[in-house]
C-alpha cells in the first residue's frame, strides 16, 4: 500500500504542484493518476521514490515513511518506467533490462540470463536482446522499459505515461499484454497518464487530479463514470460515460428468456444459433462473461432487436430484447443510486 498523507509540493519559484494530497493506493492493484498536463502527476509519482521531496506531508510504503530510507536502496526496490522509455543508449536491450539486478549485486551473467526471460514476458523475442535501443521502434522501446522496471521483481512499480509514445493500435496491444502481465504479477502499481480512457481501461482505481495538484476524485473507474464528483470530472471523463460504464458491468446478472420464446431463431442440430429466419444474419452472440456493453451493442445492432446468449459450447441458452435490457438498466441505476 502506498499512502499519501496530506502531501504538499511547492517548487522553488512558487508554483504548487501538489496540494494537500491524501490518498491510498491499494496493494496489488493498479492505481491510475490522471489529469491534464501540469497537474502534478509526475511530481506525485516521484515523491514515492524520493526523486522529489514533499514540501510537507508524508509518503509511506506499507506504513513506512520513505523519507527515512536510503534513496538508492529504496529506488532499487521500486520499478520505474520513465516517460519516453529513457533507455540507456550505450547498452544493449539485454543489459538495459539487467541494470537493477546488477546494481543489486547479481553477476552480469546471472542478470542477463534472467533478462532473456523478461524480454519474452513483454513480448520481445531473443533476437532483440543484442540490439541497441536506437535499433528499436517506439513500441519495442516501451516494452523494454517495462521489462527493465520488472527485472528485480519489485513489489511496487511506478509508471510515467508508459504507453504514450506509440500509435493507438500498438497502444491497444500493449494495454492488453500489460493487463495480462499484471494479472499474473499482482504488483502495486502507480501509473500516470493524461488519457482518461487509458486510466479507465487499466486502473483498478483512478485518481483524477486537477490543475494546481488538487485531487478531484478517487474511486473505481465505474465510480468515475457513473458518479463523477463534479463538473470537472464529468467533463474530463467525457461524453458517452453511460455507455462506457456498461463495460464494467457483467452480463451475468442480466435476466434472459428461454430461446424458445423467439421462434424466429434458427438453431442447428446441436442447439447452436445460426440465423434469424426472417432476416438472415445473426449478427453475433454473447456469453455470461461478457460485459453489458457487449450485450447492448448486440441488441442495438441486431436486425430484430434481440441479443442471443450462448453457453461455453456455443449452444443458445437465452435471449434478451431491447426492452429486457432497458428494464435491467433502470433497475441497475436504481440500485446504484440507493447504494
Amino acid at each position: 500500500m502506498i499512502t499519501f498523507d496530506d502531501v504538499v509540493k511547492v517548487y522553488p519559484g512558487g508554483s504548487t504542484a501538489v496540494d494537500h494530497l491524501t490518498v491510498e493506493l491499494p496493494t496489488g492493484k493498479l492505481t491510475a493518476l490522471v489529469g491534464p498536463s501540469g497537474c502534478g502527476k509526475t511530481t506525485s509519482l516521484r515523491m514515492i521514490n524520493r526523486m522529489v521531496r514533499p514540501t510537507s506531508g508524508r509518503v509511506l510504503i506499507d506504513g513506512e515513511d520513505v523519507a527515512g530510507q536510503d534513496e538508492a536502496k529504496l529506488r532499487r526496490g521500486i520499478g520505474y518506467v520513465i516517460q519516453h522509455a529513457g533507455l540507456f543508449p550505450h547498452r544493449t536491450v539485454l543489459d538495459n533490462v539487467a541494470t537493477v539486478p546488477v546494481l543489486l549485486g547479481k553477476t552480469r551473467r546471472e542478470a542477463r540470463a534472467a533478462a532473456i526471460g523478461l524480454l519474452e514476458r513483454v513480448g520481445l523475442s531473443e533476437e532483440f536482446a543484442k540490439r541497441y535501443p536506437a535499433q528499436l521502434s517506439g513500441g519495442q522501446q516501451q516494452r523494454v522499459g517495462v521489462a527493465r522496471a520488472l527485472a528485480a521483481d519489485p513489489p511496487v512499480m511506478l509508471m510515467d505515461e508508459p504507453f504514450s509514445a506509440v500509435d493507438p493500435v500498438v497502444r491497444g496491444q500493449l494495454h492488453a499484454e500489460f493487463l495480462r502481465l499484471q494479472q499474473d504479477l499482482g504488483k502495486t502499481i502507480a501509473l500516470v497518464t493524461h488519457d482518461i480512457d487509458e486510466a479507465i481501461k487499466l486502473g483498478d482505481r483512478v485518481a483524477v487530479l486537477r490543475q494546481g495538484g488538487i485531487l478531484a476524485q478517487f474511486g473505481t473507474p465505474q465510480d468515475l463514470l457513473t458518479k463523477p464528483a463534479d463538473d470537472f470530472v464529468a467533463e474530463f471523463v467525457g461524453r458517452d460515460r453511460g455507455l462506457r460504464s456498461l463495460s464494467f458491468d457483467s452480463a451475468a446478472a442480466l435476466p434472459v428468456r428461454p430461446p424458445a420464446e423467439a421462434p424466429d431463431l434458427v438453431l442447428d442440430d446441436a442447439g447452436r444459433p445460426v440465423a434469424w429466419r426472417s432476416v438472415g444474419d445473426l449478427g453475433g452472440v454473447f456469453q455470461v462473461t461478457d460485459s453489458l456493453r457487449v450485450v447492448t451493442d448486440l441488441a442495438i445492432s441486431s436486425p430484430v432487436g434481440i441479443a442471443v446468449r450462448v453457453d461455453a459450447d456455443g449452444r443458445a441458452d437465452g435471449i434478451v430484447s431491447h426492452h429486457d435490457l432497458a428494464d435491467h438498466l433502470v433497475a441497475r441505476r436504481r440500485e446504484s443510486a440507493s447504494a
Partner: peptide
Amino acid sequence: TVTQAATAMGYRRFRRLIDVELPV
C-alpha cells in the same frame, strides 16, 4: 530522461557518472 532513469533505477551519483553519463 536517461539520467533520470538511471537515478530512478537506484544509481548513486558517482556510479551514474561512470556507468551512464560518461559512456553516453
